[in-house]
Write a protein that binds this DNA or RNA. Sequence first.
RNA 1: GCCGGGAUGGCGGAAUUGGCAGACGCGCUGGACUUAGGAUCCAGUGCCGCAAGGCGUGCAGGUUCGAGUCCUGUUCCCGGCACCA
Length: 864
Amino acid sequence: MGHDENITATSTASASSSDGRPDDRYDAQRIETKWAERWQSDPSLYAAEPHSTKPKYYALEMLPYPSGVLHMGHVRNYSIGDALARFMWMNGYNVLHPMGWDSFGLPAENAAISANVPPREWTLRNITNMKRQMNRLGFAYDWSREVTTCLPEYYRWNQWFFLKLYEKGLAYRKQSKVNWCPKCCTVLANEQVVNGRCWRHEDTIVEQRELEQWFLRITDYADELLRDLDKLDGWPEKVRTMQRNWIGRSEGALVDFKLDGPAGPNGSTITVFTTRVDTIYGATSVQLSPEHPLVRDLSANNAELRNKVDLLIVEQRKAKEAGDLGNIEKHGVATGRYAINPFNNAKLPIWVANYILADYGTGAIMSVPAHDERDYEFAKKYSLPIKLVIVPCPDDPEETVIEPPLPFTTMKGSLVNSGKFNGFDCADAIPAMSKYAEEQGFGKAAVTYRLKDWGISRQRYWGTPIPMLYCEKDGLVPVPEKDLPVILPEKVEITLTGGSPLARVPEFAEAICPKCGGPARRETDTMDTFVDSSWYFYRYTDAHNDREPFSSAAANYWFPIDQYIGGIEHAILHLIYSRFWTKFMRDMGMVKNDEPAERLFTQGMIIKNGAKMSKSLGNVVSPDEMVARYGADSTRLYTLFATSPDRELDWQDEGVEGVQRFLGRVYRFAARHAGKVSAGTLRETAQETVQATSLRPEARALQRKLHQTIKRVTEDFEGRWHFNTSIAAIMELVNKLYEQEQAIASGAIPAALVADVQRKLTLLLAPFAPYMANELWEMRGEKESLLRAAWPKYDSALAKEEEIEIPVQINGKLRTVVVVPAEAGEDVIRETALKDEKIAAAISGKQIVKVIVVPKKLVNAVVR
RNA sequence: GCCGGGAUGGCGGAAUUGGCAGACGCGCUGGACUUAGGAUCCAGUGCCGCAAGGCGUGCAGGUUCGAGUCCUGUUCCCGGCACCA
């Protein structure tokens, strides 16, 4: 503040180029390399204050995997976040805007194999390069809080959390069927299987294997994860819907059907799950999944049945792997045995069918052909009885004559053929019958979820070692907290032949039991990398803490994240795991918030030539190349200008040229008009220009445009985030300056006003094109940091038009436009419109039925 | 099949509440400046038409003085889920 010295235009910008012309060329490389250097030499520039009287704002973009280079999707993501962070800084917030590296994962191992580089070295090298790119792009990160998940100072806390989860019974080990990617040679979580294929290898079908694995009991939180989605109204509806579907809560009942005849080792009860217990009197068979344990008993002494069941298993697995389980033709095999429906003691045949899933509900269903399409199809095929138990309208005999199947989802109707429940409305019958089942001891109301516990064991090297030991004497023994971190050894031979690479490192695998001092074997699987990203954003609040993952005080100051920004591809995986982790930490008393992020924004994909950018299609645009060719400002600005951030962006190099041209216009205007008015004079005349009365129309028009622009840009930030229109508005303002260059040169528009416009224009550009803005700011002789300069305020009175154009329609068709004072009332507008030559001519001799006048909008004359 | 999102000039896209469709940018056309122009500046540019005028927001209807916007039906494209009992 308070620097009244005159600013001269020659101070920075107008040296002469070699060909003798004044150098008002926009040289992005010169400007950007200069500022990038300055910014990097001042690490405190973007540092968040640990305590502040200002309100806090936590702006966060999803951290990248250090694959080697940034792609355009990153640039888009980070340009949005950076614009927001800078806007909040300028609005007086204490902003936390950190960045880090999600740096464990398989690509590092692949690189080790193909390029013979140790994963750690490969990863750290990539980080260096990507950090260079980020700095060159000018993103305003607080690097003092950088988090790198593959370093022991970070992953030790993964291990610590694992011990806590284990203590609370939320981490457990079980033998189970797991998804196995033969390319990754490791297990995948359910969330990492896409259409039966590996999320990393779209061409690779995931196999099922039986393995001992570590699981986290995310299902304990299933209900809360679902319920709290309702509270997340700052999240896109799409993400919430996807999570709801993923959790897949289903209310229903469990009912026990007794096996008729001798029982085997797996018991004498078939428990079925149903959401429509009200239709149970209509059950005409019981259907088991081919992998249901009881099927083994039923087929024990029946080789023919066993063979048929085995074929069903193979068929089902194949279909699942191919991702078209939903399309296979339903068929099955009768076991020859029966089960008893506890409600009416009906003896129902037990079938094994290919469409019954082993891992949903109980793997067994009651089949009600009259009221379920699938059951109907099956019953028709095998001529099983079809028994109607719901009629839509029992009082109307006409209506009761219906063809099965009734849509199963229909809740309308009354029960018939249902014993003591006859006459019940379906909706009422469900709770009543569940209650009855519970009283009688053969069932109960129950909820099932599609969500399964999170399998975190990975048979890979480059990940967090799971801190557990297997002692011959003491069994499963957790590594004591004081022995953390369990360091991931280096110099490990990595192959993709299967099995954990760490198991082949004796120095690692062979350990001593902390309980008995005897020999123990270390767990050699590592953790899923999604563990790393489940809590990394808390670490930013206290990144160098070596006593705990982070201090509660720091987390509670910054959390929840005010705005989280990233790709839709994380809608389920990362965003559900990290919600779970937050709830777990809350229950441990580490944090107070129930949810990690208040608001979530998912930006659209970038496509080129109609397809997602990919190496195989050869349509990848390299950020480095764009920066070298057009500069960082132009590259960033284009990603924001091409479309609104939530939509798919169709990349066009010509578009980048367009924004570069715009920045050139901004620069050249500034270079020509820099320093004509001192900052002090400017402050005084700013007051005068507010009065605006003495301004000539063209000056007033420029001033009006300025305030309209500030209004539009500010409102875009506060509302829809349609930065494409913000930037368009700024372009209009610049166009106005050019249109008025004559008036400016002649003095018809006062220099002070022009200087005011330029100053505010610079501030408006600051979130989007920080290099240009800083260069102009310096050119203006401003001493204060641009980042902390106050965001300009608009004056509604100055933004208001004095005269407005009113379209005049006849019978809804536009005929002309009349100009009226902005405040003109209905009568004035009507009169002006009807007096207009064109209108008068058009309506003469016709009968005016009515005239609609919408003040400030239009006139429509209805004539006959 | 279910749940989202979308369809607007030659192209990317604007149009915040039903009120001038096409802001802004690209491309294209013409002009100025220039030894030169793939730099810059100015003008024009939805379609048909010399013009007056007419037609135009995937398609078919409807409501309304007035519809890109609301309603009904329908087609296509993108994303997610999918024999979930």
